[in-house]
Design a protein around this nucleic acid. Structure first.
Lengths: 251, 251
DNA sequence: CGTCAATATATTGTCTGATAAATCCGATAA
DNA sequence: TTATCGGATTTATCAGACAATATATTGACG
């Protein structure tokens, strides 16, 4: 026997922490969202997963429980586990979003997220204009400033994320906070589209500063409109760079 | 010894299905959201939960994994499990919402949800006006009609929920679907406030029909405004009935 | 007496094996 | 043909063990 199970976890790519059940949940979750197992499909049973990944059954079970908590699947004795209909998925869950963003449908994902941002962010900015505390304003301004002085693209994206998150926070409605994950994955997904043209960067920065100013001056309506302009600009960049590649489905 | 563990599960109230780990997750999750264990608190360890609820350790672990998936807690060897900062909670998760709605802070919850609905629902209705298919329109109209003909209050609430859900669906953005849980718990929480006055019911029904009509006639702007009127009406009812009881915090 | 390193200890992480419960499916009988 | 019963499969749950890890204590050394 010897090193029978020493290769554990080599099969499944390690992700957060080094805990095996996380990796397993990640792997199975990703497969589901990616479409490997369409809704209604009966998944491999626990013993099969266990052997497939080279981990104990308890690990598989805990991973499955995590996915059940996100409504990606459900299970019953004698039946096994099956993928839930897409309607039931907790799409707004951070990890599910990440898996979606990494799936073949990432273009659809990006489009959907962008549209969703049009719903959320203008109102969030408007609320922030009315409610932001001084320290919240500072956080917003700081992130905006750091966007301008960032030296690398990823630094800029990080500051960009902080900026939008700070606005959500300042809006003073805690239900908005989980949507930070959304913006997070959106900006990350946008990364490839983002232009390096100096003029475009300058313009984008101006648009961000418009938002910052509106919130600072406590002008909800101006903030709303400024956010819409920023989103429209982003859409334009996506269309310009990614427009040549038609997606399957509704052309 | 004899019936040592025969009383299993009697300790913890059974909820969904009859599965013990669900009940345990429910109990612990509810306690956390309710505030029994404030963020940062180290929770009882697995052995203690196990004994406390009279269930096996694996059940406790699976329950904890479910709560970890909702970002309510995290854990490390030697440390134990601790409650995550509220900012990280997946507040938009169906079960978390349910626990929140049942907590002592349910009034705050209701206020927050109502405000959130102002952000989401007008835009959802506007999108639905533009995109609804015929069958989606049918679902909306049917729910609206059934609200009018409902004979009991709970029947009416059920139809009300179906109505708002159908609009979300018709909006054609899948990220909106998880928010159905939000509306669900909102209407359930509103139940106690809802008036039985015939005039009020008549008025509320008119407001719903305005929305239905706007979507049917594909008038986004009218739909948006109609939804805002409905929400304002709801707010007024809450204020009228619950206004006498001042909440702690910002009066 | 103070600082640093080794060690003890407590807790989760993981594995293994066994029993219980639930449900589907087929066989058997009316 | 139908209804009932039993077998088989899968998850649900329990139990006990060892591994990994991080805190806390303790001891040695300066």
């Amino acid at each position: 026997m010897a090193t029978k199970s020493r290769s554990i976890g080599r099969e499944v790519p390690r992700i957060g922490g080094t805990f095996v059940h996380f990796s397993v949940a990640n792997e199975i979750g990703q497969r589901i969202v990616r479409g490997d197992y369409p809704p209604g499909t009966i998944l491999p049973n626990e013993a099969e997963w266990s052997e497939m990944f080279g981990v104990g059954r308890s690990v598989v079970r805990e991973a499955i429980k995590m996915l059940m908590a996100k409504n990606l699947l459900a299970s019953r004795p004698k039946i096994g586990s099956w993928v839930e209909p897409r309607e039931r998925w907790n799409l707004l869950d951070r990890e599910v979003l990440t898996w979606y963003a990494a799936s073949p449908e990432r273009h659809t994902f990006l489009k959907t997220v962008q549209e969703f941002r049009y719903i959320i962010e203008p109102e969030a900015a408007a609320l922030a204009s009315q409610r932001r505390s001084e320290s919240q304003m500072e956080a917003i301004s700081k992130a905006c400033f750091e966007m301008g002085t960032a030296r690398t693209l990823s630094e800029r994206t990080a500051a960009d994320t902080r900026f939008h998150l700070a606005i959500l926070r300042a809006a003073g409605n805690e239900l908005l906070l989980p949507l930070g994950a959304l913006i997070d994955s959106a900006l990350e997904g946008l990364f490839v589209f983002v232009t390096r043209e100096v003029n475009d960067i300058r313009h984008a920065q101006d648009l961000h500063e418009d938002i910052e100013k509106s919130i600072r001056l406590q002008r909800p309506d101006a903030a709303r409109k400024a956010v819409r302009r920023l989103l429209a600009n982003t859409d334009a960049i996506i269309a310009r760079q990614g427009g040549g590649r038609p997606e399957r489905g509704s052309g």
